[in-house]
Amino acid sequence: MSSRSLNWSLLKTSVKIDMHYRFRVLIWMAMSAIWVMVYPVVWLAVYGDRTELSGFSRSDLLTYFIGILVMEYLAQSYVDEDMHEEIREGKISALLLKPVHFVRYFFFVHIGYKLLPLGVYAVLITLGVSVLDIPFSLPTQWYTLPVFACTVVIGHLIAYNLKMILACAAFWIEEAEPLRVLYWIVCNLFMGWMGPLVFFPLWFQQLSTHLPWQYTAYFPIMIFLENVTVGAMTYGIAVSVVWLGIAVAVRHVVVRYSIRRYNAVGS
């Protein structure tokens, strides 16, 4: 089987699994949607009679939270959830025997898991904007969408590699779940889940610029909203590429050393 058809098979299999457990997929989507509904309501109450807050119009704010909801599927990765159990129970032994490295295997399987929710979101957002008249800011510059697409890809690769490093913790410690929860909290804080980072204190904004998480959601959305200058965009892309390089290099080393100490305890 060629490399391309192998990737395609992995994608197809995950889509089929999603279609089979569609109720579970809808539950997960609804869980994300609840928070993305609550935060804008709180922030819109903060607006009061104002038309904008820190450069964000009401329409921008709603677009931002719709963006966060979509980016959770588009750019974020949840590989650590699956791998944690596979390693703990020794099931990853089967994966290690397959003619595909598990890093690549999980990458395509998880891309496949995103397709169904993204399709549902695309329909819901189109309906919401066209039928319910929900304010939605669309980009006006020709270069915005291609740059946005690039940052989404870079963001996803950063998120995937960081999560793979996190997943490898299960090779070293018995119960990695608390570490995953801790990471999730920090990640959500810096990726802009609670609100646009420009609403936060300056020191927090400066700190988040130097950390990888904002490039997995916040930065691409700001580009989509055309809320960054060309200079800031170039700087952001450069920093995200550096973080991608660091994440890939660390992931490579961590995966190599983690497999060496694997003793297939559950097999």
């Binding site: 903060v46 119960e175 608390p178 570490l179 609100g195």
Partner: peptide
Amino acid sequence: LNFLFATCGKIFRVLLVMVFFKTL
């Protein structure tokens, strides 16, 4: 180690909401 991470996670969850309201 797990106990430490779990405890930190729980404390962080409370701090997160405090940060949110402080920001607000």
